[in-house]
Design a protein around this nucleic acid. Structure first.
Lengths: 133, 133
DNA sequence: CTCGGTGCAAAGGGTTTGCATACAT
DNA sequence: ATGTATGCAAACCCTTTGCACCGAG
């Protein structure tokens, strides 16, 4: 990652990055980013949002997360970390990356070289956990 | 899972299940299932394949797997288990499910109740590992 | 001036769905 | 006879892309 220097610094690129960075742990879809950037740069198009999101991800400045839905979500934290999803309220939370050694045991025993992973945990978050469904 | 008894036993449902079961560790897409079932039931439609795949999954007879691509893959093994994906040759392999306790530590420390997970490991498989890219 | 970025709009791929019909029960 | 499952085709959703113009360098 990081051919970043050769990119032109456009208003659109900066605003997309800013929108992702301001999103906390919401993990917004491209759609949501589009809506928010549009409030600042009303002429921006969805295509440009997608292109800039992919550029930022390729440069390692943001992360792309797949949580088993059809759409991609975007994450201000680029590094490989895990996610928790509350099945009741939809809350998504970043978790520190589980060390590969902990998980890769079976794959390594099978003779595979493991270089990365994606882990999503499902359950009930702190807030929903004590309530009755 | 398991309202299965109230389903009508149609040729299409049986063939879709059979196609998934015969797929080994290929983890075929709906498309591939469609092509194969069509060789046996030439009139079947893609819509019917999708509907039956979802029924089978709802009944716990097959599994649905998301590997970070946009399409869903289908797995004859329904239980919660992990997957290894070779980034060089695309080989997909089932792995025994990692015990939740191993992974859920951080989420539990944050006060969340973890009930399930999806884990995909990426790397180079046994076959590709010894070769130079 | 150059060439990468933008906006628009159309195409793309995977998946879902409405409807009339067929068929398992 | 009843009502679910099917086939067809259109709609859907998210995402990507071709093209002419714009603007950062």
């Amino acid at each position: 990652m990081g051919a970043e220097a050769q990119r032109r610094r456009t208003r659109q690129l900066a605003c997309v990055l800013e929108a992702v960075r301001a999103s906390g742990n919401e993990h917004p879809s491209a759609d949501r980013i589009f809506a928010r950037v549009r409030a600042v740069v009303p002429t921006i198009s969805l295509g440009t949002v997608y292109r800039n999101l992919h550029r930022l991800a390729a440069d390692g400045r943001i992360g792309i997360v797949h949580l088993g839905e059809r759409l991609a979500r975007f994450d201000p934290t680029p590094g490989g970390h895990d996610h928790f999803v509350c099945e009741q309220c939809g809350h998504i939370e970043d978790l520190p990356a589980t060390p590969l050694d902990v998980e890769a045991g079976a794959a390594r025993q099978a003779g595979h070289e493991v270089t990365g992973h994606a882990l999503v945990l499902y359950g009930r978050c702190r807030t929903c956990g004590t309530e009755t469904p």
